[in-house]
């Protein structure tokens, strides 16, 4: 059963400049995927590839230009606020900026309840305390303000706040990248425990391939608003087929392998305002042919995963 199903999702931002023709930044350009219940989809790619726009669009913070998202079979654009928020929740990257410094821990955690339910203040407080226990915070800390917590504890508040509505799907946008290495492992462990306890489905966005590899069942690799490779974790990471995925895996620093003499790819991400013709990656691609600059490859089933490349 697919808990979330995304079909051909597009988000184009118009660029209006006086005396110039209307142009669009295609932040998301035809993204499709689906995730089964209790599974984790890892979404990787460099900054500007559309990962965060995807998260925002799925949270209904942006209105999609085209395409469909269905949550447990229901179209997400017609769901009521309460239904929607108890289906999907999000955890943000920076635990310092994403929580209101003037509210106490329990108020932060209970805020979704105040908005979406009719529960009394006492009931909300009780639920907040129980949720704190679940994420490994002592309920005695309920009356403290955010500045009295460390980075790892604040991220736990962020997690508790997302959990309090008992969602089925959680979008995790770089949940551990602002944390120190020794704290990262604690938070990752907590996320995995919660997934098992509460039957959660995760969309895990991160640039750290090792973290994604550890936690995800399936991997979605994005480049300039498009999916370039999508498939089971072992296939995608152990035997990447798309040249961009290959480059990502090769550039990811590891304590196990020596640095290669040549960087895996040259050049930088092209401007999304003025993307190259044909395959968006062809200017940096070591295996590009003339065909790549004129035609756009589509996602095709190859070698047990989907790849968008002519040369695979």
């Amino acid at each position: 059963m697919n808990v979330i199903e995304v079909t051909n999702l597009k988000k184009h931002y118009p660029i209006r400049k006086p005396f110039k023709p209307l142009r669009h930044v295609k932040a998301l350009d035809g993204v499709s995927f689906h995730v089964k219940s209790k599974k984790t989809l890892g979404i990787v790619g460099e900054s500007g590839c559309g990962k965060s726009t995807l998260a925002k669009t799925l949270m209904r913070l942006e209105i999609p230009t085209e395409g469909n998202v269905s949550l447990s079979g229901q179209d997400f654009s017609v769901m009521t606020g309460k239904d929607f928020h108890s289906a999907i929740q999000m955890i943000f990257q920076d635990p310092y900026n994403s929580i209101n410094p003037r509210k106490k821990a329990w108020q932060l955690i209970a805020e979704p309840l105040f908005i979406n339910t009719d529960l009394s203040k006492d009931e909300c407080f009780k639920i907040a305390c129980e949720t704190m226990k679940k994420v490994g915070l002592r309920p005695e800390l309920a009356h403290r303000y955010p500045h009295m917590f460390s980075g790892g504890q604040r991220q736990r508040i962020g997690i508790a706040r997302a959990l309090v509505m008992q969602p089925k799907i959680m979008i995790l946008d770089e949940p551990v990248s602002a944390l120190d290495v020794s704290i990262q492992a604690q938070v990752l462990n907590l996320l995995m425990e919660l997934q098992d306890q509460m039957d959660l489905t995760y969309l895990f966005i991160s640039h750290d391939l090792h973290v994604v590899k550890h936690i995800s069942d399936e991997i979605l690799v994005m480049y300039l608003g498009k999916v370039v490779e999508y498939g089971p974790r072992d296939q995608v990471f152990n035997d990447p087929k798309h040249p961009y995925t290959k480059a990502l895996v090769a550039s990811s620093p590891s304590i196990l392998k020596e640095a290669s003499d040549e960087p895996a790819i040259q050049g930088e991400l092209p401007s999304p305002l003025n993307p190259p013709s044909g395959c968006a990656f062809h200017k940096r691609c070591p295996m590009a042919t003339p065909r790549c600059s004129s035609e756009t490859p589509v996602l095709e089933e190859k070698f047990g995963r989907k790849v968008a490349c002519f040369e695979v």
Binding site: L188, E193, K213, H214, I215, I255, L256
Partner: peptide, 21 residues
Amino acid sequence: SLPGKKATAFRAPLPSIAGMV
């Protein structure tokens, strides 16, 4: 505590250092 070593299996709990600096 680093994920991505050969020894750590998929989704195995990562050894972590308890407490804080």
